[in-house]
Nucleic acid binder design. Structure first.
Lengths: 175, 175
DNA sequence: CACTTTAGTTGCTTTACGCAACCATCTTTT
DNA sequence: AAAAGATGGTTGCGTAAAGCAACTAAAGTG
């Protein structure tokens, strides 16, 4: 979604830049999810919201913004618009498999603020395994043996889909 | 950061709502990180960026916006402003422990778009364990025994810091 | 002492967001 | 059958945020 106008004979991108062209997974995720209310809408879908009015009530979001966000998420395949016309409702917004795959993203965000914003013992919500009733462990970045890793333990290298730009940027630096 | 004005005798909130008051970990994480460029700035910090110009060059972000975002992140304790005056530089923006704790968030976002945007085999960047040189496994939401869980396996309940609002919202529903 | 680099600030324009009003369709009530 | 309500939006308007370019202040460089 790049907004462009012709200006003095050259193509000029005006207004808000989008991340569409960036050769980076985080930027691409933000292209789909980075807008204002988007992740909260997805969160509510995980909690069971499906209809326009579910999201509206729960979030207190303006209708036009909600409409645009839902459309954006449908366009990006996070939601599927499901026709449930029989009982009077026309459509519901259901999480797709792509949308359900966002569970680790939401969990990581909640883990982070549980620890660093609210602090242990002040969590507003707790997520449990329905089967055992026990709290799920926080997400951990680990090596293949399951040892937790931190930033210093990692090395980022170009992958098969790397652009020349990305390869250049990932050259080892002096620092 | 709620902007308010007195309007016709009542308090009216104008402009963009913020998530400050929401009793939800995801909303609180977005309050700190949800602004436009914020997570990309953090990403670059993980890649080694420290100085104003590092971020500027890497992102192509407007200076005033970068300035505001860095200030916001310092205010929220994600970055620490470090005086490194000896070699001519005045300040650098270093990730705090709170900032380094965002590693799972960035990893979850990258995992997601590696799988659902680029697709396996087209990843632009790959993150490896520096010690073994092997790729780190993707993040998984699991039970205490390590079995992977999906949305249906989870139950969300009010925690010790739940507001009445939150408790009401997490009542079991009919669906 | 001029020139460059760094790290911003200021001013202006464009876009996004919040709010309220309106609307079309369907269902429920009278 | 007509009126009223619920649902799921769209349209129009005002304000705040984001983008761009120009400027600046301080420090380092030749």
């Amino acid at each position: 979604m790049l907004y462009a106008t012709i200006f003095c004979g050259r193509l000029r991108v005006v207004g808000r830049k989008r991340f569409s062209g960036m050769n980076c997974g985080i930027a691409q995720a933000l292209e789909a999810l980075g807008d204002w209310w988007t992740l909260l809408i997805v969160r509510d879908a995980f909690f069971g919201a499906r209809r326009f009015s579910d999201f509206e009530r729960s979030l207190g979001i303006a209708k036009n913004v909600l409409s645009a966000r839902l459309q954006h998420l449908v366009d990006h395949g996070v939601f599927e618009l499901v026709d449930v016309g029989s009982d009077g409702q026309h459509f519901e917004y259901h999480l797709s498999r792509k949308g359900e795959a966002l569970l680790p993203v939401l969990t990581a965000l909640r883990d982070w603020s549980d620890e660093w914003v609210f602090g242990r013992g002040n969590e507003p919500v707790i997520v449990k395994d329905r089967r055992s009733g026990r709290r799920i462990p926080r997400l951990r970045v680990t090596d293949v043996e399951g040892r937790e890793l931190s930033r210093q333990d990692l090395r980022t290298v170009p992958g098969p889909g790397a652009s020349p730009e990305t390869i250049r940027r990932l050259q080892p630096r002096k620092r």
